[in-house]
């Protein structure tokens, strides 16, 4: 079916071809679409299970974390109270207001840890985007056959089929002092002695995180690219647009929602990280996740709650910023 034919069909009131790839969006009357509802189950019944689940297992725990963050620690638990001391400890160190002390105006280690967690997350997100976008672009734009598209997409997802632990641990025989890379480099005479830089370093940490989470970015970007109406590209070409212009004017803006969703996934996952650093960074760093764990381990629950709450706040701000940059509702 040619483009003209398919549009002809749509305008004749038929349903738009639904499908993953290259499906032309239905051209429906905007006002009609807004208020039209599929007949069937009433809305309350449809949203009740999810709402209940979220209230009981998400909102109530979150609220209790917030409340606990004001309680007092007893050394073996906590008692109801209202104190801001844990928040003070989160932000500032002793001597913060004393110009004579070396700690003068130095933010506390917990705030700095949150900051390093955030900074590192941004780095990993950038690398994920650089890797994921071309991959998704290739899959959706260059691979013509739907079967191949699906096959290759699933192949890209293969790392997700194995457990998290295996994926992280698998780096050890690769990067270690006597790992594959070192043996290879020594073997070809590029280096005389194995180097320790590959493993238990920021390098290995970044690599492992990118490899662990890049698929989270590939998926949404792939889907938003695949949804782009090919007739638009064809029209642009017909009107003399260069490939770069087509990308800048059509593909990039239309794929933004996928990029935003993918980045939100990666952002949230890495902000909450605490386990990967132990395996591939040799525990040589602290994330807010490890701080929470450490204070939980010594039964200082209020302070763990403060850190958890601040982490959540940072995540929410990050997500809001991403959503501000891309209006997903509009773009979708």
């Amino acid at each position: 079916m040619t483009t003209v034919e398919s549009y002809a069909k749509i305008t004749h009131g038929e349903v738009a071809p639904r499908g993953l790839i290259g499906g032309a969006p239905a051209v429906l009357d905007e006002t009609k679409r807004k208020f039209r509802r599929e007949p069937g189950f009433p809305v309350p019944i449809l949203i009740a299970p999810a709402t209940l689940w979220l209230i009981v297992f998400l909102f109530l725990p979150l609220i209790s974390i917030f409340i606990f963050s004001f309680w007092k620690t007893t050394g073996h638990g906590m008692t109801p109270a209202f104190t801001l001391e844990h928040y003070r400890d989160f932000f500032i160190t002793e001597g913060f207001f004393d110009p004579k002390k070396p700690e003068f105006l130095t933010p506390s280690i917990f705030l700095r840890t949150l900051w390093t967690t955030f900074r590192f997350t941004i780095t990993v997100m950038a690398i994920c985007l650089i890797l994921a976008y071309p991959l998704a672009y290739f899959l959706s734009m260059q691979v013509e056959d739907f079967k191949w598209q699906l096959t290759l997409f699933l192949l890209a997802m293969v790392p997700f089929w194995t457990s998290y632990l295996i994926r992280a641990v698998a780096w050890l025989p690769m990067l270690g002092r006597h790992g594959l890379i070192n043996e290879f480099l020594v073997g070809i005479g590029a280096i005389d002695e194995p180097v320790s830089f590959f493993l238990y370093s920021e390098f290995s940490y970044t690599m492992a995180l990118v490899q662990l989470y890049v698929v989270l970015a590939v998926g949404p970007i792939f889907f938003s690219l695949a949804k782009i109406d090919r007739t638009l590209l064809e029209a642009a070409r017909d009107m003399g647009a260069t490939p770069f212009q087509i990308f800048r004017e059509i593909i990039a803006p239309l794929s933004l929602p996928g990029v935003a969703i993918g980045m939100i996934f990666v952002f949230v996952m890495i902000m909450g990280e605490f386990a990967t650093a132990v395996v591939v960074y040799g525990g040589k760093t602290s994330t807010t996740g490890t701080v929470i764990l450490n204070y939980y381990a010594i039964a200082n629950y209020p302070f763990a709650a403060v850190n958890a709450f601040m982490l959540m706040l940072a995540m929410m701000i990050g997500v809001v910023v991403i959503l501000r940059l891309v209006d997903i509702r509009k773009e979708l």
Binding site: H178, Y200, G282, G283
Partner: peptide, 25 residues
Amino acid sequence: LKKAGHFRAFWENFGQSVNLMVNGE
């Protein structure tokens, strides 16, 4: 000392401590 790279790793479980030495780290 840590900044100068004295410590190769900080281990958290038994298996890690074994691997560190077995792998020559």
